[in-house]
Design a protein around this nucleic acid. Structure first.
Lengths: 225, 225
DNA sequence: ATAGACTCCGTACCATGATACGGAGTCAAC
DNA sequence: GTTGACTCCGTATCATGGTACGGAGTCTAT
């Protein structure tokens, strides 16, 4: 299979395959000098493994080490064994920590429907220690790029926003606003409780942006209203 | 506590604390306008949690979402619950995958001191065949044939080899020796920790063979030395 | 009240893990 | 044997998660 087919099958880009090759994670299967790469079908699995390992927090270096662990002629058995054991210890430690987070989440969920009006239970509370802080939630959306417009259609809107009580809140609101079509940038100030939004007035309008903020659980108003 | 003390306690740099603050992962605890940051002691835990999450492959954005999950006073408990449940599903999926890697490593380790033939068992072999015994691949090695010589140039060398602690090791050494030019056969004994090598003294010599073994990570010596 | 240690803040820089680009080369199908 | 899709390769660019710098400001102890 050629690189494009492989990439497609493994769910990555062609460039990524070449990148992994450069990093020594997959072999370079070229005939003699110049020609296409032709891959064995099992390479798909290899790439999927790499992606999984990435998502689990392994670096490419570590992943390469994992992949090259083998009991084979030419490799020192004892050394391989020791390496594998070391990796195994790492992985088990990771598993333990993940399970701790898992449990903390379950605790959090169990505590949630509870009656108490002012129960501020965060994952850290459930995790072992104290500490609290919070921000309303939001939905993850893909971002639609808004290019800078040449001339007078770009306007600045200043919104007063209440309910933002930490930097996390401002980040949330900033992200939401910048995800909105027509918004080029949004500068948030926690101290002033304000957002300065540069937007394209031919694409969106203040009322819309106010709604965006309010949908996140804050209240917003245009100061000159 | 000031930022330096906090950073020290959490095992990160001062700049990192400021960085997390900018990203909205920890609150900015400044008094009025200009002055030092003073942190509550539990912030240490918070930072440690962030580092752990990082190592487990969570992005800072995800970590922030985890940290800001809470059962807030009054409002939409159901939403928080749903969010937490979604996170929990993610985390459990991660845990499952880590455990798969864990198992693959254990399989790999278990295979090492195991059976006779030279199996090339990589983590991918162990990984793909979850539970079911997927065929371990026979490594194909190119052998340079050494024909039996007619007369007196064939000699036998006995090497004492230490470091071989499983049948896999003896197979490895055997393969390596028999790949060597001039070697006709090598008989390995795990119990005696010895190799009996039939070789052509016009082509190779004991010192060379010792090197072959040592290059694989074992120590070898000629007994009559 | 002054030294010395620490902190502030913006900005520049870094490594990792990708992605994008573009002109030339390759291949398979017609 | 020409076309058109795909590939090659080097290099440039990007996002994330930090790290480093440096001049000015702040704290604390003496």
């Amino acid at each position: 299979m050629t690189i494009g087919v492989l990439a497609e099958a493994a769910g990555v880009g062609v460039e990524t395959v070449r990148f992994y090759e450069r990093k020594g994670l997959i072999a370079q299967p070229r005939k003699p000098q110049r020609g296409f790469r032709y891959y064995a079908p099992e390479t798909v699995e290899r790439i999927r493994f790499i992606r999984q390992a990435q998502e689990l927090g392994f670096t490419l270096r570590e992943t390469r080490e994992l992949l090259s662990l083998r009991t084979a002629p030419g490799a020192d058995c004892a050394a391989v064994r020791a390496q594998a054991q070391a990796k195994l210890d790492d992985v088990m430690e990771k598993t333990r920590r993940l399970e701790a987070i898992c449990q903390a989440l379950q605790t959090l969920i169990a505590a949630c429907p509870g009656k108490g009006p002012t129960v501020a239970c965060t994952i850290l509370d459930a995790f072992g220690s104290q500490g609290s802080q919070g921000a309303p939630q939001q939905v993850k959306v893909r971002r639609k790029q808004t290019k800078a417009q040449p001339s007078g259609s770009m306007k600045t809107l200043v919104l007063s926003i209440s309910g933002m009580h930490c930097a996390g809140c401002t980040e949330t609101v900033k992200s939401l606003l910048e995800l909105e079509e027509g918004v080029q940038t949004a500068a948030l100030s926690l101290e002033e409780a304000k957002a300065r939004i540069l937007y394209d007035s031919t694409v969106t309008e203040p009322g819309r942006l106010v709604k965006v903020v309010e949908r996140a659980g804050y209240s917003a108003s245009t100061p000159a209203e």
